[in-house]
Amino acid sequence: MFDPYYLQQLAIGLSLGMTYALMAIGFTLIFGVLNVVNFAHGEIYTLGAFAGLVLISATAPPIVAVILGALAIGALAGFSLERIAFKPFRRFTDEASLKSRAMRESTLLSSLAVSIVVREALEIVFGSQMRSVPFEYLINTPVRVGPVILVTGDFIIFGVAAAMLIGLQYLLTRTRVGLAIRAVSNNPLGAKYVGIDTDRTIITTFVVGSMMGAAAGILMGLYYGAVFPAMGFTPGIKAFVAMVMGGLSSIPGAVICALILGISESMATTFVSSGWSDMVAYGFLILTLIFFPNGLFGARRERV
């Protein structure tokens, strides 16, 4: 008989992978699909969680309202982020600037700067300690499935991640907005010449991606029951690894790689000390970069 221990570890790994996927979807949309270097996604996630927490402690609304509030803050944050850290770099519209890699990659620093400012500001306003979420809002009631124990949040996160994935795939492949996003990503100058409003397309992508980031943040806050300013860092790294492994531009690829990452981490805990489980993520990143420079599911784009 198969040892139920491994089944339990597999379930934990899937649930862990799902939490990474939740973060990776919005991250990949902006960073990978739109092809804009953005390192502030982790802070959008944190902002979403804090927005939800503030709403909960202020008015104790139903959970749906909490998530809608987080989505609104996420949209606002995505819009502001784009305005502050990205738009200034697009003010030169000559061909050389638009083609310049340096112009595109300078947002690495501007987005990082925004992320540091946001994190420190949250620390000043809320303090850096973990804040607890009221217990009635938590989504971690245990659920027994055969020999395996999961919590309600695992199913909610699965549902939300699946909805996000399917929705985005539909948006990107079946709608004009999606077509515009892909066109801008492929060749900003060309997109401009054929009459696509590149500014609006970029802002839309930021708003949608950041709403997903904020939703991920509040869901993870309710799932783990703790909200704190530095909470976006680790998920950000894991999402980045999943995205690179998945080949940058492929959202399904990122989700599959997030699941692989989660399962590998929980399985690795069985064989090596838990202290080493983070090595799995970084190990995968290095192996991908060496052996699959286009990612596991990418292939059509320049090297990662």
Binding site: Y5, T234, S266, T270, G275
Partner: peptide, 20 residues
């Protein structure tokens, strides 16, 4: 006897291992 990284969020793998 085992060590984990400070700030780990998910202890369930480790807990299952301890219980074994």
């Amino acid at each position: 006897s085992e060590f984990f990284n400070r700030g780990l969020k998910d202890y369930r793998s480790l807990i299952s291992k301890i219980e074994r």
